[in-house]
């Protein structure tokens, strides 16, 4: 009995739950690659990589649909309760957020062909790369918090979302300066500004995933807990 307490009596149910987690990890990996590639394409102005990245988004969408279907069928067939129920529901949430991050990657890749790289300073690209690295780290950590069911990592992700936001604000100012300096930069800078904004959104999705991970672990709503002072962000 002691051994059995961690495993379901119905082993196929256990298998399905494991498969669900694995699918989320896989999808997370796909999304991370997509963001990395999109940023690379943006910085190197690699149109082929951009096209490839945009195309790869379909696989992410399919993955989300697969996870949704799996989750719905498990709810229908297994009547999940408690931890299992939270596992499945948060998997739906996480898949949704990952799909949105995938969309962001596609969006980034599509902007490559609109930007004339000759005119934009390398420094701006550095800002974008820094932004992308930060967002990727957030996504990775949030996925870790989900698969490891670690509420502390999830809290950490939420804490660091401010850094992403702060970086976005500073980039925003920088782009604004460039645009004011030379109106010919406006088109490119606007595109890049959108890219930065998108990456900031990706960071927000990462906090959503962390929130889902926190719910999975504790059964509580992270923001409610922060408001009620049950947990401290800082």
């Amino acid at each position: 009995m002691a051994n059995a307490s961690n495993e379901h009596i119905v082993s196929s149910y256990e298998d399905e739950l494991t498969a669900l987690t694995r699918a989320i990890s896989e999808m997370g990996g796909m999304v991370e690659v997509a963001i990395t590639n999109a940023t690379q394409a943006l910085i190197r102005v690699d149109h082929d990589l951009a096209k490839q990245t945009a195309k790869a988004d379909k696989a992410v969408d399919d993955m989300q649909r697969y996870i949704d279907e799996k989750a719905v069928s498990m709810i229908a067939r297994r009547q999940p309760m408690a931890g299992d129920l939270r596992h499945i529901v948060s998997a739906i949430h996480v898949a949704n957020d990952l799909e949105r991050i995938g969309d962001i990657a596609k969006n980034l890749a599509r902007r490559v062909k609109h930007i004339d790289s000759q005119r934009v300073s390398k420094q701006l690209y550095n800002g974008i790369r820094h932004m992308s690295d930060l967002a990727l780290a957030q996504i990775k950590r949030s996925l870790d918090s989900f698969t490891l069911r670690d509420a502390n990592i999830a809290l950490d992700v939420c804490r660091r979302d401010d850094e992403v936001d702060a970086l976005y604000i500073s980039l925003f100012r920088e782009f604004l300066t460039y645009m004011m300096e030379d109106p010919r930069n406006i088109t490119d800078c606007t595109h890049l500004l959108f890219c930065a904004k998108n990456l900031e959104r990706a960071g927000d999705h990462a906090t959503n995933i962390a929130e889902a991970a926190y719910y999975l672990k504790t059964g509580e709503n992270l923001y409610y807990d922060i408001e009620s002072g049950k947990v401290q962000l800082n």
Partner: peptide, 20 residues
């Protein structure tokens, strides 16, 4: 609360089908 977020591990195990 019991069915979404039971506090006790035994409850969790029972309602998710981990102990008989």
């Amino acid at each position: 609360q019991i069915f979404t977020n039971p506090h006790h591990k035994k409850t969790q195990d029972y309602i998710t089908g981990r102990i008989g």
